[in-house]
């Protein structure tokens, strides 16, 4: 019986169907392709970057793109391309860590709130309401600002702000899933609360979480770059795209490449996650799927 229940659950989110759906979504495929390339760049950064990203060479400062420095150099003579390549790993790490913490916290609390109901639900959801009363980036800005400028504080601040939307969505899904027969069956078989929540209900609420996490990567990378641009995130000499853009501001007239390339890197990365997230939403959103049939 347990096997049967598991099979029913697993049949609800067949990964082959997701891949088949995504194959038809051209932009999602482009997004996934770009993300794969970015992951390779991040992993292979030390081998593919033409120069040391933090090595200063004042004789070569503010050079336009040329054969030795394909994207030019900054005001300290550092290779822009090398800094962008190393910045890829910084941005992806920020995204993965923040989304990981926010999603884990939000999903766990959303599961508990939706499944338990009552006072626990009230408490968790009212905390969510209160946190959502702040415009996210502004709260993150204040938390990071008070804790002091650093990449870790920015990640912490974004995670504190980010878990709420996961909790709210998961709770909503749990409310409908927990009334399903297979949950009752699991309960009748004597499964404990934790097992029912994480083994039986969780797999049925993952679809929106996957979509949110993908779009969340885009949002977090953008927000972290914004906070670094304001000077609160990555500190020199870390090659982070937002802070590179900030460094380039003073040289807009003489060296526009300092402004153009880091912004382009942020946009392409965020766009790739948005493409993939949009595609996943189309494939995984049951309402749209129903409408298509």
């Amino acid at each position: 019986m347990h096997d049967l229940v598991t099979k029913i659950i697993e049949s609800r989110l067949p990964s082959t169907e997701v891949f088949r759906g995504l194959r038809k979504h051209r932009l999602a495929l482009i997004g996934a392709g770009i993300i794969l390339v970015l992951i390779f760049i991040a992993i292979l950064a030390p081998f593919i970057a033409p120069h040391d990203p933090i090595e200063q060479n004042l004789e070569h400062r503010l050079l336009p793109p040329n054969a030795e420095y394909p994207l030019g150099t900054d005001n300290l003579g550092r290779c822009i391309l090398s800094r962008l390549i190393h910045g890829t790993s910084v941005s992806l790490q920020i995204g993965v860590i923040v989304v990981g913490i926010a999603a884990t916290t939000g999903v766990t609390l959303g599961l508990i709130a939706g499944y338990r109901g009552g006072l626990v639900d009230e408490l968790i959801m009212r905390i969510v309401d209160v946190l959502l009363a702040f415009p996210g980036i502004i709260l993150a800005l204040a938390i990071a600002g008070i804790l002091g400028p650093s990449l870790y504080n920015v990640m912490l601040a974004l995670a504190v702000v980010g878990w709420t939307s996961y909790a709210r969505v998961v709770r909503g899904s749990v409310l409908s899933v927990k009334e399903k027969e297979f949950v009752e069956a699991a309960r009748a078989l004597g499964a404990g609360e934790a097992r029912i929540m994480f083994r039986h209900i969780l797999p049925n609420v993952t679809a929106p979480v996957i979509v949110m996490a993908t779009l969340g990567m885009a949002h977090v990378i953008l927000a972290a770059a914004a906070l670094s641009f304001l000077g609160l995130g990555a500190q020199p000499p870390t090659p982070e795209w937002g802070s590179m853009l900030n460094d380039g501001r003073a040289f807009m007239r003489t060296a526009p490449h300092l402004t153009i390339f880091p912004g382009l890197a942020i946009m392409v990365t965020v766009l790739a996650f948005n493409f993939l997230g949009d595609g996943l939403r189309d494939v995984l959103d049951p309402r749209l799927k129903g409408a298509a049939r």
């Binding site: 885009a218 953008l222 853009l245 807009m252 912004g263 942020i266 946009m267 965020v270 766009l271 948005n274």
Partner: peptide, 21 residues
């Protein structure tokens, strides 16, 4: 999608570069 993905601080700087500088 492009608009959502474009950092507004970058857009601001590009606009300054083009229209002001």
């Amino acid at each position: 999608l492009l608009g959502v993905s474009m950092p507004n601080f970058w857009l601001g700087l590009l606009l300054i570069m083009f229209f002001s500088v």
